[in-house]
Design a protein around this nucleic acid. Structure first.
Lengths: 246, 246
DNA sequence: ACTATCGACTGACATATATCAAGCTACTTA
DNA sequence: TAAGTAGCTTGATATATGTCAGTCGATAGT
C-alpha cells in the first residue's frame, strides 16, 4: 500500500485555537439544533461561544502524539483520521462529515492517538479540552466517564485490528489483543486459552478457518508462538508486535 | 464462509431475567471494584442488587430483533456477538470477556440489533432496561445520551462495513453508508460527491486503489451505479443493498 | 498554449487466500 | 472398548486481489 506524503497547504486559517479562530456564538449557528457541542454547552455555566476554524483542503487538524488541545465538531467539509505504522504507512480509521465529533480518542491520555486531515475545505468548531473536561466532570460521575473513555479506546483498537492487510498481521494483532486483555485483568499475557474456535476467529478477522490454521502452524514453525489446540503460548512477543505494526 | 447452526443446550439457568436468576448484592461481588454496573448503581437510588445468571457454553444470551430486556455485564467466561445476513450466514462483531458490557446496541431502538452467544460457561449480571434508563436519564442530559447512542450505532456499522468478504460487497456497503449519511443530513441519497480519493477508499476498506477502480467500473457496467470521477449516482439501490447484505 | 503533475483507469502477471477434499486427533456417547 | 462426532490440520487447486507498468484526461502552473 502506497505511502502518502501529506502536502502542507500554506493557507491555514486558525492553526492554533489559542492564537485565533473566529469566536462564534452558538446561538447564531445554523446547526445549533443538531450540534452536540451546543447542547453540551447549554448544560454548563460556560458561555455559549466556541471558536470556529476553516481549513483549506489537505491540511492537518491535529497530529497523533501531540498534546490534546480540543475536540472538534465538523460543520462542513470532510476529514479523515488515520494512524501511521512504524514504516510510515497510513491506515485510515474513519471519515468524518458534518455533525461528527473529532479528536475524542485523545481523552484517555491527553494526547491525540490519531491524526486528522482535511480532504476538502472544511469548517470545524473547537471545544478546548479544559472546557470539555469541566463540562464532562460536571455532568458525569467519574465511573461513567471512565467507561466512555474505555469504550472509545476499545473501538479504535477494534478498527485497527480488522484493517490489517494480510492473515499473519491480523492474527498477530488478534493474539496480542487477547494477551493485553489478559494482562489488564491480572492474568498471564504469555499463556492463555482461546475461548473461540478457528471458525469464529476466521469469521471475526475475515479469513477462512483453514487460513487461521495454516497461519498458526507457520507462526509456530517460525517460533513466535506455541500452540496446542486452543492453548496459546506467546514465545516472541516483540516479533509479534513488529508483525502487528504492519 | 460456513453457516453455523447454533446448538441449543438444554441446560439454561435463568433464561428470562424476570423469571428467575440469582439476585446478587453488588456489595458481596468479587468484582465490584472494577464493575461498571456497580458504579452506575451507586449513583442511583436503586438498591445495589442485580440478577446474575450462569450460561452453560453454546447458549444465546439474547437474539437480534428481540425486545431489549437488559444490558449484561460479563463476569466470567466468553461471549460472542454477531449479526446474520439474509442468507443466514453469521458475521461476528466482537468477543466479550469479563468486565465487558453486552447489549448496549439495542438502546436506540429498544430491540437488540445483534445476537449474543456464550462460547463457554459464562456468568453475567443483568441490568434491566427500565433500571438502566432510570439511571441514565437521571445522570445524563438528553443530548449527551443521544450522542452516546448514536456513537454506539455508528461503531457497529463501521465493523460491519470492514468485515465484508469481497471488494464488491465492501464497496457497495461503503457507498450505501455515505448515501444514508447524505439522507440523514437532508441531501440526496441518490447523487453525491465523494470527498476522498480512490487511494483513501482503498486504504479504508483494505483494498488496493486499483481494485476500487475496477470494482467501480464493473458496478457501472452492471448498471448499479453511475460514476464520473468522484461524482456518484446510485442507480439501483435495492441491488446494492442486496450486495451489501452478503 | 504548453508542460508538468496528479488521480483515475486498464492490462498483464504474481500471489495470498478461499474452496474443496481428505485425514487426523481429542472428546463424547453407547 | 468401540464408534461417532466436532474441531483442527494439511494438500491440491481455483480465484480474487495485489503489484507493476503504462496510458489517459483533468487541472494547475509557467
Amino acid at each position: 500500500m502506497a505511502l502518502t506524503i501529506h502536502k502542507q497547504s500554506g493557507y491555514h486559517i486558525g492553526a492554533d485555537i489559542h492564537a485565533g479562530g473566529i469566536p462564534n456564538s452558538c446561538n447564531l449557528c445554523m446547526q445549533r439544533k443538531s450540534c452536540i457541542a451546543s447542547q453540551l454547552l447549554s448544560f454548563s455555566s460556560q458561555p455559549n461561544m466556541l471558536h470556529s476554524h476553516i481549513y483549506r483542503g489537505a491540511e492537518h487538524v491535529f497530529h497523533a502524539g501531540n498534546n490534546m488541545e480540543a475536540v472538534y465538531i465538523v460543520k462542513s467539509g470532510a476529514i479523515k483520521s488515520y494512524i501511521t505504522n512504524h514504516a510510515g504507512e497510513e491506515q485510515i480509521l474513519n471519515f468524518y462529515t458534518p455533525g461528527d465529533v473529532l479528536g475524542l480518542d485523545g481523552l484517555a491520555t491527553k494526547k491525540y492517538t490519531s491524526s486528522a486531515f482535511t480532504l476538502q475545505t472544511s469548517a470545524v468548531c473547537a471545544i478546548p479540552i479544559q472546557q470539555l473536561e469541566k463540562i464532562l466532570t460536571h455532568l458525569l460521575p467519574d465511573g461513567l466517564l471512565k467507561l466512555t473513555i474505555e469504550k472509545l479506546k476499545r473501538d479504535s483498537r477494534n478498527v485497527a485490528l480488522l484493517n490489517k492487510k494480510n492473515a499473519k498481521t491480523r492474527i498477530a494483532a488478534f493474539l496480542l489483543d487477547i494477551a493485553e486483555n489478559c494482562k489488564a485483568h491480572g492474568y498471564s499475557p504469555k499463556e492463555f486459552e482461546l475461548s473461540m474456535s478457528r471458525d469464529d476467529i476466521g469469521n471475526y478477522l475475515g479469513l477462512a478457518s483453514e487460513t487461521v490454521s495454516r497461519t498458526f502452524t507457520k507462526m509456530q514453525a517460525s517460533g513466535w508462538v506455541k500452540l496446542d489446540r486452543r492453548r496459546v503460548t506467546i514465545v516472541d512477543a516483540p516479533h509479534l508486535y513488529q508483525l502487528a505494526d504492519n
